[in-house]
């Protein structure tokens, strides 16, 4: 990524998101009410609000999965600023392909697609050749302790923890300049959590800008360089 090292990789300003539930009498749920956030290359910002207060909504809005009503979400994409709130669909797709990686705790399983293919999919979409993608996919699956005999199977029948580790392999396979992590360690055992902490440290060493929700206090302390709350100031670490 080019641009000034002192510029944030991700800048959120005055972000508002309200859900209107038309099928339930038009109830309005204001979730984000003027959120400001700046995340710089090489830092991992942890959102520390209690559950249900909008951390996932913010991360999804930054990924342009949710559509905010007001505010700006500016990311540095290919060395120029792109506002995710107003960018055209195909520009959003390009940002997701090259600039922002999003990792949640849930794997969206596609029937019949083998684990290894699920994992390398983001690299293939990026245009990386198949052999390189396969090499990285195998290395990451091994690192996340998915037994090799499972690589050629669809994750449909895997346990929750295995599916989550497949999802992490898929999420971390790209060298994205920005990572959004939504409870990446939620249902993992201690050993797997330590591997995810390592993966996050690797990304930080590459100067990635990371923002995430980490429910697990130990993981949060291990990875966060700074903690914030959505509608307040900096929180105590």
């Amino acid at each position: 990524m080019s641009g000034d090292a002192h510029d944030p990789a991700l800048l959120v300003e005055g972000l508002h998101k309200t859900f209107t539930l038309h099928t339930q009498g038009g109830i309005q749920l204001p979730v984000l009410r003027g959120v400001d956030l700046a995340v710089y290359p090489g830092e991992c910002v942890a959102l520390t609000d209690p559950s249900g207060s909008g951390k996932s909504t913010l991360l999804r809005a930054v990924y342009a999965n949710y559509r905010p009503q007001r505010g700006r979400i500016v990311v540095s994409h290919d060395g120029r600023p792109v506002d995710m709130v107003v960018a055209a669909p195909r520009e959003l797709l390009a940002v997701r392909q090259r600039t922002i990686g999003y990792v949640s705790q849930f794997l969206r399983v596609i029937p019949r697609v083998p684990t290894l293919e699920v994992v390398i999919d983001p690299l293939r979409a990026f245009g990386i050749d198949r052999d390189t993608a396969l090499r990285r996919g195998r290395a990451l699956l091994a690192r996340l302790r998915i037994p090799e005999r499972l690589w050629s199977l669809s994750p449909v029948t895997f346990s929750g923890g295995e599916q989550q580790r497949v999802n992490l392999a898929r999420g971390f396979i790209g060298d994205f300049p920005i990572f959004l992590l939504d409870e990446p360690t939620a249902s993992l055992d201690v050993a797997s959590r330590a591997i995810v902490v390592d993966l996050i440290h690797d990304a930080l060493a590459r100067r990635a800008a990371i923002v995430g929700a980490f429910h697990d206090a130990e993981v949060r302390q291990a990875v966060a360089t700074r903690t914030v709350t959505l509608h307040g100031r900096e929180a105590a670490a």
Partner: peptide, 21 residues
């Protein structure tokens, strides 16, 4: 209209919300 996951995960129009739900 929108990205597929936008329309399915955060539908705006009452009719889309009905379809998705």
């Amino acid at each position: 209209s929108g990205l597929t996951d936008q329309v399915l995960d955060d539908p705006q129009h009452p009719y889309t919300q009905l379809l998705v739900s």
